[in-house]
Design a protein around this nucleic acid. Structure first.
Lengths: 194, 194, 194, 194
DNA sequence: AAGTAACCGAGACGGTACGTCGTGTCTTCAC
DNA sequence: GTGAAGACACGACGTACCGTCTCGGTTACTT
């Protein structure tokens, strides 16, 4: 009547596929990774992949989400900038990790496929923005962040420069960039730091 | 001994190819655009394309560069924020223009192809950053921008949020976003606007 | 470990390909027939052709062999010349049949491709020579053919003139030619017929 | 107004093209020889070839004709079989000469192109048949050949077996074959040689 | 315990596009 | 205005993957 039965799904195959996909993305550019290649590497029939995922990007979406999920917690030491720096340092590391190069491929895929674009935004980006927002709200409550701003806009202001360098390839994404961003963003472009 | 002779190149074919490529990108997602499709639309043999460009992305690089080139001049009215706003308003328009959807495809392609990545950075991005930098330097000289910052970092801070929304698809890129960015960036996250 | 699995082979596709190839050869000269054309006509992917045959000629080899196989039996009425005439009349018909024009193309292909040459000789020609040889041996036993000659040489003497006209295009291959050949070959060039 | 002016034709180019064509046919199978290859080897523009010849086969037709022309004269010692043997020995040599492998290609091309077929028959084959016929007529006059036969049919009977082996690749074309053919053809298949 | 439904690995299938090669035409420049 | 050179529009090549399909085989529920 309807789709496949998830209860009968082979967990072994699922893991092999996610693993193979990430592995291949580590070894070669995203668009050289093929469904056939993933199936071969995973020791799996192509049908098994298509049964559970609609596209290569969908596989990587799941793979990346599950990998990144537990590594980007937000600390709360009471010092906003310190907490941001510690979490964003982790982000910088991830963005430079070849094991996460698939992430760039995923973002690339999103530019041509609205489904992927929506999934990336909803599943990957927004939940993580939300984590950050939660920390920012607390900071607003204790006066470490202007109260008259939308925290989501702040998230964009802070993280966007990382993605900009990542995707435009003008300069590498480094922890030093964080210093610059924090200085500019927190102190503003007009007034010198007191 | 070497490659084809550029003096013999058909300008007609060149224009037809660039035009066809942009046209097709307007009609469909980037990765549905094929070399064959471009050749067909341009009324050109595939060989003629491959003779002069190594890839679809290379065609679009040239096409976009020549299209965008004259539309993003930097005004200098003496008021930095006003000038930025007027130029960035133009940028927002371009980023939303379906005729420039190829641009997103190009950035996507850059994630898999280092040559394209380098070309995009050097040919598209950096020269335009430089234009902005020039305006910022003048602003520093008249005290409208902190003198202790690298203007390139400022460019990143201001433009990155546009690209972030463009590529992550969390929210649309709008002129309202400019207000937000200017407020946050110029006034800073900590202190309320005086 | 190696090539495709013949048990999984689609008989439908096989027949469609052989049929399409013969059909196209009937409609146009051999070298205008393309793999793409065959695939299109057969409603088949090119890969399916290349999976099972190395070349256009190989397809036609199989097609022709299976078509011609049952039409060229050798009768044995006791009268050698009568039996030869009846079989060779059939051969003349085939050589003039547009449906077998592919045969000429195959022979042509053999001049450039040693693999095809070998296949044509071993699969098409020699088995048919052998059939004729068998009949000739019987004729030798009953004194209707000189006993001191190699029957294969006789086969050549009798059939070669047909192929000569077929391939050199000096004159058409006709049943009248058979009369001439039989007269010359059986009676010899020197002595007048009894 | 009309075609090119033959008086201004470059003899140097003509020779270079004919030579290059034969040379390339000696080095590789006929159908790997291309117009581009000939032009390159001859140091000639493609247009120069197309101006004077309609096809690759037409070039080889001219090349082969001019090469073979002076080597196949017919002796007349008074002994028909001896004269035939000496001329046909020369033919056997030519058919085995790699320098004449283009000849096989030409015959192959004739199977797909009626123009070539006609040219081969009229320019290459028939004039040479005629030379042989002239010798056979003399033989008929002196009773060395049956008077009641068409000499052209005799030519076919004698030469066809050579072409048969050449083109069908069942056995090599050798001088020994000549002995067999002469025995069978002159003495006939029925009666033992007296 | 046997029957059966569905997932599994495998890979052949009809297709689309790839990037390359050769065709025959055309244009440009040198002689 | 011929000849060398080669860019052009075109079509076919043989290959790589696509996403669908069919085939045993195994596995896990049903009866």
């Amino acid at each position: 009547m309807s789709g496949p039965n998830p209860e009968r799904r082979s967990e072994r195959a699922r893991r092999a596929i996610l693993g193979a996909a990430l592995e291949l993305c580590r070894e070669q550019p995203y668009d050289k990774v093929t469904m056939e290649g993933i199936a071969k590497r995973a020791g799996v029939g192509k049908q098994t992949i298509y049964r559970w995922w609609p596209s290569k990007a969908a596989i990587l979406l799941e793979a990346i989400d599950s990998r990144a999920t537990d590594r980007l917690d937000f600390p709360d030491t009471g010092e906003l900038q310190a907490d941001l720096r510690s979490q964003m340092t982790e982000v910088v590391t991830l963005l430079n990790d070849p094991g996460f190069s698939a992430y760039k491929g995923l973002i690339a895929a999103a530019q041509s496929d609205p489904d992927i674009a929506r999934s990336v935004a909803e599943i990957i980006i927004k939940p993580r923005e939300l984590h950050c927002v939660e920390r920012l709200v607390k900071a607003q409550e204790v006066g470490q962040l202007r109260a008259d701003v939308d925290p989501v806009d702040v998230v964009e202001l802070l993280y966007a420069p990382l993605y900009y360098r990542l995707l435009m390839h003008t300069r590498p994404v480094t922890v030093e960039q964080l210093d610059t961003v924090f200085d500019l963003a927190f102190n503003g472009l007009t007034k010198s730091p007191g």
